[in-house]
Amino acid sequence: MTDTFQLTVNGTQVEVTCDRDTPLLYVLRNHLGLKGTRFGCGVGLCGACNVIIDGRTVYSCDTPLWSVAGQAIRTVEGLAGSPVQRMFLEEQAAQCGYCVSGIVMSATALLERNPKPDEREVRSALDNNLCRCGAHNRMVRAVMRAGEASS
């Protein structure tokens, strides 16, 4: 059923008219043109589609639009060169890079609630994100350095 919804995306109020069950992922990517949040599995098992709502990472692929109406959503585009992103580049922490924006979002949420995580805490926080290329250790180093840089 088509309806109109208000959202706040990266601090900007937007209005979206589409089916209420549309996954947030497609609202972001196609209706709002924010392509940095990516489809990986559609059932919340890989983290490629992670966004932050209320300080917590949310799988946008299986989050229907109606359930986030009126909420403030942060996507990778809203980070604007955060310390996490800068450290990902410093560490060259990617290969294909498809999983990276979701991982950057998980790392951002982690550092906001725990600014100086140890390695075990970083790995545990990223366990809901999958990387197939094997760039894990670089990413963990990048997140820890970002924690040190911002504290």
Partner: peptide, 23 residues
């Protein structure tokens, strides 16, 4: 020398670069 990858800034900053992102 370890030249930084030319494709990584787009990927880390979430810019449209993959075929999935083409419109």
């Amino acid at each position: 020398t370890s030249t930084p990858r030319i494709d990584l800034p787009d990927k880390v900053y979430g810019r449209a670069r993959f075929i999935h992102d083409m419109s």
